[in-house]
């Protein structure tokens, strides 16, 4: 119940922020969609008739998955950094619920919003490109949620580092664009790249949505395990830096 209150609380705050700063939200949306259109029509014109329809579908799905992944990772790390910069991070510590649960609920709310936002973008993309994908949205949402858990872990680690070192935008940018690389890796059959975060989930999602593949259950177990390992690592790193921040009085000092 506590998580529900926390998530609703965060969603309400986000909606209020969007209503108040609608210009920023609209321009952000236009930029994101503009990049997608440039990629899509660029690839189509460059490749001409030789471009396979699967490649265009991969581009649509891949772009949406990248959007969700990047905003999920950044929402965690940037949120912690932002709260620290604003001076409100210490206030979040002053709750009997505990900072980790609060951050996770905030992140989950952010991700829910991002998924919804990206599904709207996906529909717009399909409408403009005329390429309609057959997507099972229940499967899509669950798979995305399971896959991005690994990035939440990395985001927590990044946020922990940000509390101590403050300016970490370069590090966050590298991670954000590194996600494109993760999505491009060949992770099946299982090899060393399969153990990287997000990669197994993204590859599976593209396989199901674009290529109508079906996969054995163990693969989903592997994706969940991969995500949980990174979440545990992220929580451990966050706790380490949180302890250090409380030792050095860095929580409220920017």
């Amino acid at each position: 119940m506590t998580y529900v209150i926390l998530i609703i609380n965060e969603l309400k705050k986000m909606v209020k922020e969007i209503r108040r700063y609608y210009f920023e939200f609209i321009t952000g949306t236009i930029v994101m969609f503009g990049i997608f259109l440039a990629l899509f029509f660029g690839l189509k014109n460059f490749g001409g008739n030789n471009i396979a329809s699967d490649s265009l579908d991969s581009l649509i799905v891949g772009y949406i998955l990248w959007g969700i992944a990047m905003t999920s990772f950044q929402s965690v790390a940037s949120m912690i950094w932002d709260e620290s910069q604003k001076g409100t991070l210490e206030k979040l510590y002053l709750s009997q619920i505990g900072i980790e649960k609060i951050l996770l609920a905030k992140v989950f709310a952010n991700i829910l919003f991002n998924i919804f936002f990206n599904i709207v973008i996906l529909f717009l993309a399909m409408l403009i490109t005329g390429r309609w994908l057959n997507i099972d949205f229940v499967y899509f949402i669950w798979m995305v949620l399971i896959s991005v858990i690994s990035l939440i872990g990395l985001g927590l680690a990044g946020g922990g580092i940000a509390i101590i070192h403050k300016k970490v935008t370069s590090l966050l940018s590298v991670f954000s664009f590194g996600i494109i690389g993760l999505m491009a890796l060949q992770v099946y059959p299982i090899n060393i790249f399969s153990f990287l975060p997000y990669a197994p989930g993204a590859k599976t999602l593209i396989g199901v949505i674009v290529y109508d593949q079906t996969y054995p259950l163990w693969r989903y177990g592997f994706i969940l395990l991969n995500s949980l390992v990174y979440l545990v690592i992220g929580l451990y790193v966050f706790r380490m830096y949180d302890k250090k921040a409380r030792r050095l009085n860095k929580l409220g000092v920017y």
């Binding site: 209150i5 609703i8 609380n9 309400k12 979040l92 709750s95 009997q96 619920i97």
Partner: peptide, 10 residues
């Protein structure tokens, strides 16, 4: 409202 939510209060 927000900080009440952070304390788990609706």
């Amino acid at each position: 409202n927000y900080f009440a939510g952070i304390m788990g209060l609706s």
